[in-house]
């Protein structure tokens, strides 16, 4: 029973709403909602798509020899990749919550979010377009670590705490990280998250809260960088099962937390070296594009451009 509403007046209340004149800052994880003409989210109308299905691809990835520095590593077995269909995503944010619970991501609270220190490994960016302020066109874009093959974060880490895995993952060695934040500055997608404070302190002190954490995932401490791992714990679990059974990992056997939760099946994970894999088929679709491809980061995450086919009657109404 709250003091606002006692049993004496169960259905009516004397509470009134009045302007106090006080101001309170809103905490939001995103502050800029225009695309500024940049090809971050790519959208085609159906006629445009039918005319040139690969229209959204732009220039595509630069040729392999565009860089003086070659990775010098061949991915013979597994090469993990992820495909995100912007046509399917409707911005429900379920992936964000799934990732948060799977990967022991701390909830940092209003004050820290207000300082742009949210810890989400995946986020759903929202952009508004058009001149109708009442009814703008809305685009959603899930963004997580792109697992670049030529990752700008890896070169600049002075202690080699973020390195390239044998299967093409961009890996974080939390124990090695000293927290210079250079990787985060140099990540063009800014998907890396930093523990500015001890965000897991409460969890460590409360025995009940300790049980909250996923035992397969390290709980990170203060001063350490973290980011999307493509749910490496799930990859390793599948690898162990496959090794025990003496077979290769099957397509669809590994589902990342975001993929598993997505109600629209917008996210698909798999081995891009396997031409039969679902992710490979999606990647070979003409709608596929790479985010900021001109930087030659060669992301392992690809996007499928959104194709719109608005009903002219609805549009007019």
């Amino acid at each position: 029973m709250t003091p606002l509403r006692t049993s004496a007046a169960a259905w009516t209340t004397a509470v009134q709403v009045a302007k106090t004149g006080a101001r309170s800052p809103l905490a939001h994880t995103q502050q800029h909602f225009r695309l500024e003409g940049r090809e971050i989210v790519r959208v085609m109308s159906l006629p445009e798509y039918l005319k040139d299905p690969a229209r959204a691809k732009g220039h595509g990835l630069p040729p392999k020899d565009a860089s003086l520095f070659q990775p010098g590593w061949e991915y013979k077995e597994n090469a993990w990749g992820l495909s995100v269909d912007l046509g399917s995503c409707f911005g429900c944010n379920a992936c964000v919550v799934a990732c948060q619970s799977e990967n022991n991501i701390p909830v940092v609270g209003k004050e820290q979010v207000g300082k742009n220190r949210e810890m989400h490994w995946i986020r759903v960016d929202q952009y508004y377009e058009g001149t109708d302020l009442e009814n703008p066109e809305i685009h959603h874009q899930p963004l997580m670590c792109q697992h670049c093959e030529m990752a700008p974060c890896e070169v600049v880490c002075p202690v080699a705490a973020t390195v390239h895995g044998a299967e093409g993952l961009n890996e974080m060695a939390y124990n090695r990280c000293v927290g210079t934040r250079y990787c985060s500055n140099n990540c063009p997608y800014h998907v890396r998250r930093f523990n500015f404070l001890e965000y897991n302190g409460e969890r460590e002190q409360e025995p009940v809260l300790k049980m909250l954490a996923n035992p397969d995932v390290t709980v990170r401490s203060r001063g350490v960088m973290e980011k999307c791992t493509f749910c490496i714990q799930r990859i390793n679990r599948a690898r162990i099962v496959a090794e025990r059974e003496g077979r290769a990992i099957r397509d669809g056997e590994i589902r990342t937390a975001c993929q598993q939760t997505c109600p629209a099946d917008a996210i698909v994970f798999g081995n891009i070296n396997d031409p039969g894999a679902n992710v490979s088929k999606l990647r070979s679709e003409p709608r596929t594009y790479w985010l900021l491809e001109e930087l030659n980061t060669r992301p392992r995450t690809t996007y499928l451009a959104k194709v719109t086919n608005p009903n002219p009657d609805v549009e007019a109404g």
């Binding site: 820290q112 220190r117 949210e118 500055n185 930093f194 523990n195 500015f196 404070l197 001063g223």
Partner: peptide, 15 residues
């Protein structure tokens, strides 16, 4: 004692 969080650094602006 507390961490870098006492400063103003955040995620796009790491330095």
């Amino acid at each position: 004692m507390t961490g870098i969080g006492i400063w103003g650094n955040n995620v796009p602006v790491g330095w």
